[in-house]
Design a protein around this nucleic acid. Sequence first.
DNA 1: CTGTTGGTTAAGCATGTGCTTAAGTATCAA
DNA 2: TTGATACTTAAGCACATGCTTAACCAACAG
Lengths: 114, 114
Amino acid sequence: MLNQQLDLTFQALADPTRRAMLERLTRSPASVSELASPLAMSLSAVMQHLDVLTGSGLVLSEKTGRTRTCRLNPTALSQAETWLNARRTEWEQRLDRLGSYLDTLKSQGNANES
Amino acid sequence: MLNQQLDLTFQALADPTRRAMLERLTRSPASVSELASPLAMSLSAVMQHLDVLTGSGLVLSEKTGRTRTCRLNPTALSQAETWLNARRTEWEQRLDRLGSYLDTLKSQGNANES
DNA sequence: CTGTTGGTTAAGCATGTGCTTAAGTATCAA
DNA sequence: TTGATACTTAAGCACATGCTTAACCAACAG
């Protein structure tokens, strides 16, 4: 299912540490220890966050020598953005329809009201 | 931090049942049992999902008589959308700055096969 | 008043999440 | 080869999550 992808993406985005890592990666690719250095937790914990991020597809990484370089993958990001955008758009369209419906009611009401 | 709001919002969005409830609410407001009827779980479970949705601010509800009517709150939605948009935009700006460098990297080392 | 409907609350349980420490495995440098 | 560096894996623990069932309360309807 494609929805499973959204599960993983939103779940990954739900943690402030992981969002901080993503914000770091929007500036430039980084190694695991570069990602870890500003964070007040063990390297192992950062690795586990990184697993969530790569598991969701939000982050790609490859290893050269003994360092792993991580970078943002915008595809998964824009998929989540698309879902949110669709919801907001549908909601606004509904509001528009409701608006004109209310307008109709109003003019009808003027005719029907005693 | 105001980021706690993002935690709650993304956490709420990370569950397929809750996203289904939101999609239902984009069409029209609904009562708790209307929200529950297409879902294969107890009313109590739906209530708990609803608590998460209202707790994140994504859904507003008010009770009249014995029925509670729920409706979408687009504000929290667009806040999450804004965060995603900012990340993608920053990433694209970075890509623009480094575009030719990435092309160089690609033609250098990566003999990418199917 | 009596029963039904619509919702709410509480308890319990299995599984998931976010850490920790400890013990690896490969590089790379000297 | 010896040792530091950069990550990796495993185990364990406290707490959160996503359900369940059961009991409960507050409108209505008859």
